[in-house]
Structure formats: C-alpha cells, structure tokens
Nucleic acid binder design. Sequence first.
DNA 1: TTGAAAGCGATACCAG
DNA 2: CTGGTATCGCTTTCAA
Lengths: 353, 353
Amino acid sequence: MGKPPATLGDIAKSLGTSIGTVHRALHDHPGVSPATKARVLQMARNLGYRPNLAARYLSSKKTLRISVNTLQGTTSFWDEVRTGIREEAASILLENVELEFRTCPSLGEGEEEALEAAIAAKVDGIITFPSRPETLRPWIRRASRSHIPVVCVATDAPNSGRLGIVAIDTLASGAIAADLMGRFLGGRAGSVGITVFDMGITEHAEKYGAFESTLKEAYRKSRKLFEERTDLAGMYVTTEASIPVLSAACDAKVLDRLTIITTDLFSDLVPYIRSGAVAATIYQRPRAQGQMALRLLHEFLSEGGRRSNQVSLAPHLVMRGNLDFFLSRQSQESASKNGQNGQEARRLVQDLA
Amino acid sequence: MGKPPATLGDIAKSLGTSIGTVHRALHDHPGVSPATKARVLQMARNLGYRPNLAARYLSSKKTLRISVNTLQGTTSFWDEVRTGIREEAASILLENVELEFRTCPSLGEGEEEALEAAIAAKVDGIITFPSRPETLRPWIRRASRSHIPVVCVATDAPNSGRLGIVAIDTLASGAIAADLMGRFLGGRAGSVGITVFDMGITEHAEKYGAFESTLKEAYRKSRKLFEERTDLAGMYVTTEASIPVLSAACDAKVLDRLTIITTDLFSDLVPYIRSGAVAATIYQRPRAQGQMALRLLHEFLSEGGRRSNQVSLAPHLVMRGNLDFFLSRQSQESASKNGQNGQEARRLVQDLA
DNA sequence: TTGAAAGCGATACCAG
DNA sequence: CTGGTATCGCTTTCAA
C-alpha cells in the first residue's frame, strides 16, 4: 500500500553517490558530470521521487515572490481580484508567498513598464491582466524565457507562452445571457432582438486615451441606437461600461421598455438592479478569478502542478432577489483590503505613472 | 518589517527553560507544572508564536485522518461532493490528509452507525451530510466532545456543536428562482403563480422507507396538482426528485404550458433542459461544496483557522446554452473518480448495509 | 566534479 | 517534572 516516498537519500544510496550530487543534478546546478546527472534523473524517475515540500521550505526559507500586475480600475473589479489573490496567499499553509502589486492607473498606462519591472525584479511568477494582448505578448515571452511563469487573469494572451489562464468562460457567459434574454422577452409580441453592445474596450480605450471619453462614447453610441431602433426590446451590455448605456436609455425614455442584462457588479449599478431596470447582471467573480490564478501559479512553482492550466469559471447571475447576498460578500472582503495593501498599491501606482 | 517568526527555541531561551518543556506546555502534555505552563503560554502570546507547519509535518509525519460520511445517492450529487473533497485533499502541499469514506446506501440507512464508526476509529475530523439533523445531533455532539471537529455539508445541523457548515445559500437560491420565474412569466396574461414543491425529503423518506416510493409519491402528488390547478403556469422543484414531476407534467399534457425550474443537474434531467421543457435548473455546486468543506476542516486542524465557519455558496444557473459547459466539467472529474475510490466506497457501503 | 556536514523548527524519547 | 538530543528531508556551504 503506502510505502514511504523516495527521498534524496534513497536515490543517493541506490546510486552509490552522495545526497549533494543528487540534489545538484535534480536542480540543474553546475558542477555535475552529464553522465551522473543522467543516472540521477533516471533513478529519480524509477523511484518515483517527489520532493518533500515541507522539508524544502524548512531548510531554505526562500519565499516565492509573485508580482500581481493589474489595473487600478474604475469599478471594484480589480480590487476584488487582488483580494482573492491575497486571501489565497494567506491560506497557504507553507507561508512562503510574498506578493508584489504593480498596479497601473488605467488601461494601457504603464503596463509594459510594470511587466518589465517585474522581470527585472526577478520575481518567481507573475499574475497579469493582459489588457492589450498584442502589446504585452513579447513581454510575456520574455518572462517565460527568464523562467518566470505568467498566469493571465480575465483575458487570455494567446501564443505568448503564458503558463496558464483563468477567466470566466465567455461562451457560457454569452449563452446564459442569450437564453435569459430569450426567455425574458419570450411572451412579448413584436420583440425583435438582443443587441450585444461591445465597444471593443481595448482598442477603443487606446484610441481615445482616457477612460472618461470611452464612457462618453458609449453614451453617444447607445443613445443613437435607442433613438433609431424603436423596435428594440432587449440589451445586453458585455462590458463594464453599463452606466452610460443605462443613462442613455433613461434619457431616451426607453428604460422601462427595455430588458437589460449587464455585466459585473459595482455600486453604481446597484440601484438599477434594485429597481428592476436591469433584469440581471452577469457577475464575473473577480475574487474567484484571483484565487484560482494564485493557486495555479503557486502549485506550478511548488511542483504540485497537476491542475489544468486553463481554468474556466462559470459566471454568477445576480438579480434583485439575490443582490444583497452578493453585496454582503463584497463588503466582507473589502474590510481587510484597505488596511495593508491599499497604500502599497497606491505607492506603486505613483511609481508607474 | 518582517522579523523572523518566533520559534519554540525563542520561547525557551527567553524563559531560561528547555525546548521540550515549552513544547509540552503548548500541547497540554502531562508533566508540566501549572506555573511554568502559564509562563510558557504567556510568553508564547507575547512573542506571537505560531507553529511552523512545515517543521511540524516533517518531524512527526502524522497524517490527518478525515472521515467523509455521505450518501451513495441516486444522482451524481454525492459523487461530485466526494470528488471535490478528494481534489482538495490532493491539492494540499503538505500531503498529510488521509480520507476515509463511510458512504451510506441511502437516506437514513446506517448514518448513525457510520458516525459512530468514525468516532470509534478516532479520526481527526469528520465531514458529514446530516440528512436527519435531529437524529444525528447527539452523535455530532459526541464527536465534538471527543475533540473531533465536524463539518456539515449541504444541510446544517443546528445546535449540534458542529465546527462549521458549507452549503448553498438557500435564500439566494430561492430568490433567484423566484426572480426568474417572475421574469419568465412576466409577459403572459393570466399567469398565476409559482408552485414551490417541497416534499420534505427527510421526513418523507423516513416515513416511506425507500427512495423509490418517495418518487412515486412525488409523481402522484404533482399529477394531482396539475390536473386540479389548470391555471398553473410555473413550477419550481426544489428537490432532487424533479424527474417524477416532469413525468407527471408530461402525462398530464401540461409540460409545454409550464415554465419549470428545477434543482441540481444529473443525466436524466439533461434531455428536459435541452428540449427547453425545463427552463433552468439551479445547480448546487456539489464539487465546490466538497472542496470548501475539506478546506474548512483542514485549516482548522492545522491551526490556520481564520476562515469563517459558515460558508454560503452562490448557486449556478444552468440553462440550455451553458448546459454543455457544466456537463463537460462533470465528466472531467468523473474520469479519476471511479478508479481509486469507487471500490473503496462500495466496500464501505457493504460494511454498513 | 564530488562528498560530508551543519542547519531549518518541531516532535518524541530517554535521562536525570 | 524537566533538560537534552536524535530525527524528519532538503538546502547550502565548505572541503576534498
């Protein structure tokens, strides 16, 4: 049944060599002849050697330094992601994780510099939001080449050599919105369609520079839509920018005619949900995303790495009835958040800005 | 900033005593004078001593034995709970958790005996489904008195002295069902009400003995309902027993007239969801429940215990569009499940039956 | 290029 | 009752 797992000593003994040599061989340390190194590796495999993490951490109390490169953000989304990461780091028994937050003030401001800084600081791993995958791809490659694994959150950076990706499943997300919209509108005669409003936040923000103008643009576009398409019955806002859309609907006096589904959950949205103007919002579970990202990275760095590198989470559906449930969870977490790391984050933001 | 955490040695030195004494004092081991014990405890508090778990595990490779007392079940629900527990146990870096499954063939069969057996086996902790809280309460008390922490899954056992409870938030669950039902039926004239069908699974099963008769009863009751209340527009089935209700609706020829929301996700339900007969099902996330339960217990047993003892999870909403997403997750996990522990579980079932 | 040995922090046992 | 010490598996440094 459970024979005791092989140790470095076991490998050394059965090879007639010393523990030190075995150790060096397994870790690609200099000063081992290729021949012995091969023998060690082979024997390790034979014996099914797996390092004892407790012993490892005990002897060399190296801590894993992990850089968290995310956005300051206008909603609470990224705050919650960071909270999830912090929670998960704290719940690791071997208290060997150290977080470094490199938070960019807004989309596209200093993201490359932040990644570069993380690499230069020789962190052990990086969690990042690749808001502009194309721009960031070379930096992620560079990190990988320096043996620094990178995990993406919320958005993928394909072909970048990233270790893993944690995100809400976009297909499931869209599908549930579509299903709901269909059912919500089901009975009504003459109802036409679902308008997916996606302003391509990445490119757009880049073009317009500041986030504020992005919001204005969202208002303008949707206002126009509402006035032109009088047959519109439903609206699904897939970005964080639901507020301007809601304002536009209100100003165009179509708010009570429309069935609206939004994305994410933040304080400005609350009254709309409570009043029923927003039928439902699809919550992207930022905290869970943060937790999973850290887990993924930490397991990899600890040679635990059995988990799949692509974590797809199911979104949550928030409506009037369960709104308070979700709000209370958010406030629970924000209690601890502001104390320790709020300052640190702010400092880093300044450094980067 | 980060001063090195205090060790047993630090306490011993600053007290002019030995490491062994400090250790005994902190662990309530016999053979320490009340005086020194008090001094040690005080000093430990002063220095903010926290045990180094890596060192602890390394020196005494005691493993935490955890008994998982759940049901065999007719749907996959409990299989998934157990899978979640297993996954979580495997992902613990200090590989110090050993699971013992005590699985009862069905509701009420041998549950007390299973708990008794776990206590007798002197396990370090218990995860259990208290299907009949009143009956199990004294046993949970007994466990607590033997210093065996008990975590309940899916259902609470109030006033039992249990360490914690992991479950889907029932309020949020019901609220979302109500909201959805309201929206789904919203446009239709003459739509009347939402029928919550709860057959009180616990008491019922007890009364009727076998699960099969429970299902028959569910069919009979709902069939009657459908034939009497011709104004019925919606139906929310809060138990696992949705299949007989659906059959009844079909036989009564009201299936396409009704908007049906069910609970949980299992293979027999799939065709109904796919065809749209079931508008949505509220998924209780058994895997997540299992994971959280094990986490809670393990953190407690490792003195990590910072987490709240009451974990309320948000349910997932499954509709036609995201059905495949959830199905693929289920099959992912069942791959590993059947290999190692299926046999073990079955064996234990026989022992208990 | 390799071997030997000193820790890391807690546990457990044996002597006093 | 208390002090001392070997031990766990690994990392790291110092010799050879």
